[in-house]
Design a protein around this nucleic acid. Structure first.
Lengths: 209, 209
DNA sequence: GGTTGTCTGTTGCAATTGCAACATTTCTGC
DNA sequence: GCAGAAATGTTGCAATTGCAACAGACAACC
């Protein structure tokens, strides 16, 4: 994760040399995507939280993904392939670094060295993004809520949190991420407690296995 | 999609100039990943089909992902972050292009131009991979099987197949991709038929809405 | 040509989950 | 410090889904 931050900083220092790049600040509720022509746009969250939101035919709202500090998003990764309406909305005040991928190629052919480094950075960041996505996919492909929870706990546990940790999200956010009903998630947590798999106090979890 | 094939071919032509690269042939059932040191390995399927397989604690097998021609996979995208056992197994005879990402940086610093192009290719391919992943995630976050089917139909429909098309996978594979029970998927297809949303004959589908 | 294996198609039943509705607690802004 | 909003926690009930267990169609292989 430290690597990711270094990469972002590196990127920030390089992009001015490459031409097109801008940092914009969005207030809570602002629509993020419409501010630039929608042509292979790439965005980086410098700070804040933005949601990728879907409105179904029925008009109901669902959070497809949530991007936080140092996350990548944008049309380049999310082209319109279905008749779903996708929007990116700032969940809180957020600073976003934006540029258009195609511009990188067209513009600064003068400075090849910079380009090599730039592409390398972007590649690494994109790979880090696919890693996050893979984890999410593996979690989503667990059949039961219990399996999802145990997978997620195992993930937290291995990433240097040990057998005890505090869940870094709200349960509301977590149920979104798991794509399950929040009350069903709470219920399953209770079952895991009563069956002796975990000890829980709010977001504090202790694995007993 | 044509772009993807061009990129792969381009990559194949470039990599020899960059040093470390190999093409290996695997027979059905072979384990693919163990053939190279597991350090930021990147693989490209030249032809054939390979499965990313997970074995749970209970020993049951699940296909997490399936990679086909021109798909990228490898440790670089799938580091070990949980206590799950992941394997990559050839589903049929397959040719795989393999190289180690870190080598790209260490080795050919002599030829900067090639590197720029190489990184650019890899970046584009990786972005194409994230697009596939995003589609899968959006599909997986649909709550009901019906919604998943309609989303998938809409995807097929928009990608130049029109209102009539033939599903390019077996229903067994499709239920894996949807992460739902196959019989439940068949049942929902029947409901969609009887309620007049679709007309179906085997894998041929006609949308009536 | 027959055998074996995979894929399709169907159904009953049990289980998990989503939904709705509510009370309680915590957080946030003024 | 208060008011309103957001998050947590709980429960009953209905609905969707997974599971198991089939039978038949199709394909591959010797």
């Amino acid at each position: 994760m430290k690597e990711k931050i270094e990469l972002i900083n590196h990127l920030k220092s390089l992009l001015p040399k490459c031409g097109r790049m801008q940092v914009k600040t969005f207030q809570k509720g602002d629509n993020v995507m419409t501010y630039l022509a929608k042509r292979n746009q790439i965005c980086v969250v410098l700070n804040g939280v933005v949601d990728l939101v879907r409105y179904d035919a029925s008009g109901s709202k669902a959070i497809v993904e949530r991007y936080r500090e140092n996350d990548l998003f944008g049309e380049a990764f999310h082209p319109v392939v279905t008749n779903n309406e996708l929007f990116v909305v700032a969940k809180e005040k957020s600073e976003i670094l934006q540029f258009i991928y195609d511009d990188l190629e067209e513009k600064c052919n003068k400075n090849c060295k910079t380009h090599t480094v730039l592409y390398n950075d972007l590649l690494k960041l994109t790979i880090l993004k696919t890693i996050d996505q893979n984890i999410r996919i593996e979690l989503l492909t667990k059949t039961t809520i219990r399996e999802k929870l145990l997978f997620y706990f195992s993930y937290l546990s291995i990433n240097n949190y040990g057998k005890e940790f505090t869940i870094p999200f709200s349960f509301t956010d977590l149920s979104d991420y798991f794509n399950v009903d929040r009350s069903a998630l709470m219920r399953e947590l209770k079952h895991l407690s009563s069956e002796g798999f975990i000890e829980r106090n709010g977001k504090y979890i202790k694995l007993l296995y």
